[in-house]
Amino acid sequence: MAVKGKKKNLRLNSVSPGAEAVIYVILGLFALCCIIPFVFVIIISFSAESSIRSIGYSFIPQAWSTDAFRYAFRKLPQIWRSYFNSIFITVVGTALSTFMCALYAYVLYRPDFKFRGFFNFFSFFTMIFGGGLVPTYIVCKQVLGLNENYAALIVPLLVNPFNIIIMRTFFKSSVPLELIEAATIDGSGEYNTLFRVVAPIAKPGVATIALLNALVFWNDWYLSLLYIQRNKVLQPLQALLMELQNNVEYLSRMSGQMGAAAINEAAKMPTQSLRMVLVVLIVVPIACAYPFFQRYIVAGLSVGSVKG
C-alpha cells in the first residue's frame, strides 16, 4: 500500500533533460507571446503623442513622455476615489462570492445529501437560461433596492453557476469522501468539516475560484452603467475607463448623423496614449494581486511537494 515517498526518489523519475528543454522552449515562446502586448501597452502609454502620429505604434518611440499619465490624473479627479471603489468592491465581492460558492459546491459534492440533484440542477439551469436584461434590472432596482449604492455593484455578481460546478469538481477530484466520513464519525460538525478539513485540501481550487471572482469584480463596468447614475462617486475604475472608451466609439459611430455636434465633442476626447494609460492603470493593480492567488494555485506544483 501507500508508502510515504521521499522527494529524491521521485525526482529520479522526472522527464529527461532534453524533454524538459523542449518544454521550456514551447512554454517560453507562448509566455513571451502573452507578455509582449503588455510591454507594448506600457511603451505606448509612455510614448509622446507626436511619435504615435508620425511613426505609429512602435516598440521604440521617437520620444518618451508622461503627458498622458499627467493628463489622466488631472482630467480625472475621480480616479483615486474610483481606485478605492474598485478595491473595496473586489475585496468584499470576492470574499462573499467565494464563500457562497464554496458552501454551495460543498453541498453539491455530498452524495449523501438528499436534495443534491435538485440544487445541482437549480444552479445549472440558470447557466443556460436567463430572464434577460430588463427583467433582471427591474428586480434589482425596484425589488431589491440595488440602486446608487455599493451593493448594486456587488450583489448582482455574487453567484456564478460555472464557478460552482468548477468548485464541485475540485472537491470531487481532490477530497476523498472517506475524509468527511471520518470527520463526521469524529463528531465534527458540517461547517467545521468544510472549513477545517475540506477547504485546506482544496486550497488550489478555492484560490482559483477566488481569482476568477476577483477578476470579475475588478473588471466589471456594466453594473455601474446600469445602477450608478446619480451618485457617480461610486463608479469603479473600469467604469471610468469604459465611459471614456464608449464616448469615443459612440461619437465615431454617430458622427455621420450628428454632424457638427459630434465633431466638436469628439475633439475633446482623449488620445491613443491616454487610452493605453487607462489600461495600465487598470491592469497593474490586479496583476500585482495575482501572485497572492498564485501562491496557492501553484503551491503543490510539481510532484515533489507532498501535501495532505
Binding site: 515517498g5 481532490s174 488550489p204 481550487g205 482559483t208 494555485i297 503551491a299 503543490g300 495532505g308
Partner: peptide, 15 residues
C-alpha cells in the same frame, strides 16, 4: 484550472 486540478492530485498516487 487544470493546473489547480493537477496540484490537487494526491501525490501518493505518483509514488
Amino acid at each position: 484550472l487544470y493546473l489547480s486540478a493537477i496540484t490537487g492530485i494526491d501525490s501518493t498516487q505518483y509514488e
